[in-house]
Nucleic acid binder design. Sequence first.
DNA 1: TTGACATGCAACCAAATGGTTGCATATTAA
DNA 2: TTAATATGCAACCATTTGGTTGCATGTCAA
Lengths: 103, 103
Amino acid sequence: MDAVFRALADPTRRQLLDNLHARNGQTLNALCAEMDMTRQAVTKHLAILEEANLVTTLRKGREKEHYLNPVPINEIAERWIGKFERHRLDALSDLKKRLERED
Amino acid sequence: MDAVFRALADPTRRQLLDNLHARNGQTLNALCAEMDMTRQAVTKHLAILEEANLVTTLRKGREKEHYLNPVPINEIAERWIGKFERHRLDALSDLKKRLERED
DNA sequence: TTGACATGCAACCAAATGGTTGCATATTAA
DNA sequence: TTAATATGCAACCATTTGGTTGCATGTCAA
């Protein structure tokens, strides 16, 4: 969970997820082609995404294919965001009332 | 959006959100009491949460009350996570098929 | 088998991050 | 008015982060 949040914090890594979402199973070189940095930098980002289980890889000869794994993101939506979202309206109305009371 | 992800990346800040979720409208000192670090460190974290619009503050004399704002989290759920979640089952079955094909 | 290509590993570096301490300011209460 | 309390601001520091370069390894194809 912690690793997922940390992984999602970086815009480059979110872009990598976007790229994989657009075309799944891309090789490292293919992903690098769309990124404005060295291959090694992209490798590090992908390692962090893999660590967070957001990306799954599949060795294919000398190539490595990368697949988006939506499960951890789904878990955030269900477990963590849901907690706040559940009380969203309550919290908003509480805040509104409180602010109005202060005027 | 970027600021929200960055803000959520830190466990201390998620704990602050948890604390506010448990009891909304806490003052800085109240929040500090539950955190194992200096007041100034907590202040910085709260500033980042405010910057990300995850926390709203209300000056009350010499005190400052902090309120959880669930809207940005809700936006993540709707805009960003939804995008991947929508194709969750597809992606999973794709991956499964692919892995089976490789065996 | 050998050259080209895809990826892996490690050292290194600048900048950002998360924390500290010290002092300043503003408000409440005696 | 003055002491205590609540917060703000700034300098400073260690570690992490995001990037680089250089070289090693493994696989495909001629």
